[in-house]
Computed example of a mutant assay.
Amino acid sequence: MTDFETTLAAGKHKSPGNGQVVVGVDGSPSSLAAVAVAAREARLRGCALRIVHAFLWPVLRVPLEASPLGPPDGGLRNEALRLLRDAVMHAAKAEPDVEATSALVTGEPLTVLEKESRTARLMVVGSRGLGGFVGLLLGSTAVHLAAHGHCPVLVVRGTPVADGPVLLAVDGSPAGAGAVEFAFAEASLRGAELLACHVWNERLYVGPGDPPNAVYDPDRLRDAEERLLAEALAGCADRYPDVRVTRKLLTGRTRPVLIETSRQAQLTVVGARGRGGFAGLLLGSVSQALLHHAESPVAVVRVEKPSPELGG
């Protein structure tokens, strides 16, 4: 399936057998930005970087090699190989000590990258590729991978604050537990503060349809939300004593509040689907909103259901 592999000079940070950071590239400025981010993530994890380009043209059965009438280095295959070489050089410039390999893999991008995610520690993609429509906020590859990937997916977008915190969106759901673990680990790797935010509404009922005798106790509700936030973080806080954690309750509508808070972060972390999501939905409304509108890169962490043969 792999048509081409090349290796940059071995880096001292390679750690065989523990998975790689994988980044998908298509030659767009967005994907080159993703390469630099992925190289940094590989350095932080002490692992290798794998740069992948999905080569669709063989599937469409079009000529791949240089035309006899054209330059010898022409043709779709050579163009793809140049794209990969440029990406490897970009990674080397960003993180010289990280070993990077590149692969030209025959197939459609969504399928290729989803398969790559099965053995990756982290998948990194740009927010938009060459095929994006003008005005589109997020490419289909990023959305699909966030919803279907088998490992955490980091979508490079926005303008990260270099010394800002890692922002964690907490909802207390079982599906969000993986995001909590990932955010603590990422904050530890980066030497950053963890800003754990939980957004709630002060009223149980909002709007003209409120029951006329609705009774609620704001103080009691706030106490319950504070407990939810503390309990969601408790286990990881013990496992990552080096991470300074700031817990914050925010009030308002979840999506706009988190989008605004992401302005101060170097990374925003969210679960793929939390409380209130429809059964079977792979990507919740909050994670989708952050993918499209967050002001910093977004990591989406999806919890996979155990397979039946493993007793799940």
Rank of each mutant, 00 (worst) to 15 (best):
P211T: 06
E5I: 11
D97F: 09
M89D: 15
Q288Y: 11
C197F: 06
Y240M: 03
R128T: 04
L130T: 11
V23Y: 01
L282K: 09
R50D: 01
R227M: 12
E99A: 12
A33I: 07
E108Q: 15
T268S: 11
E99S: 14
A162I: 09
G191M: 07
L83C: 08
P218N: 04
P256L: 04
A80S: 12
E295A: 15
G70V: 05
R40V: 10
L221C: 08
E193G: 10
T251V: 12
A232F: 01
L104G: 02
A185N: 10
V25Q: 07
L258W: 02
L122Y: 13
A142Q: 03
A48N: 11
R85C: 08
E79C: 12
W200E: 01
L145E: 01
G135T: 09
R220I: 14
G164P: 04
F182M: 04
S127E: 09
R220S: 15
D171M: 04
D217G: 11
H292V: 07
P96E: 04
E231W: 08
E260Y: 09
R82V: 04
E79K: 13
R82H: 13
A54Q: 00
R244E: 12
G277P: 11
G191Y: 01
T111D: 14
A103T: 10
I51T: 00
G158M: 00
V161T: 15
G17M: 03
V22Q: 01
F182H: 01
L113T: 00
E193L: 08
R275Q: 13
L189I: 08
G164M: 03
A175W: 03
L145T: 02
R253C: 10
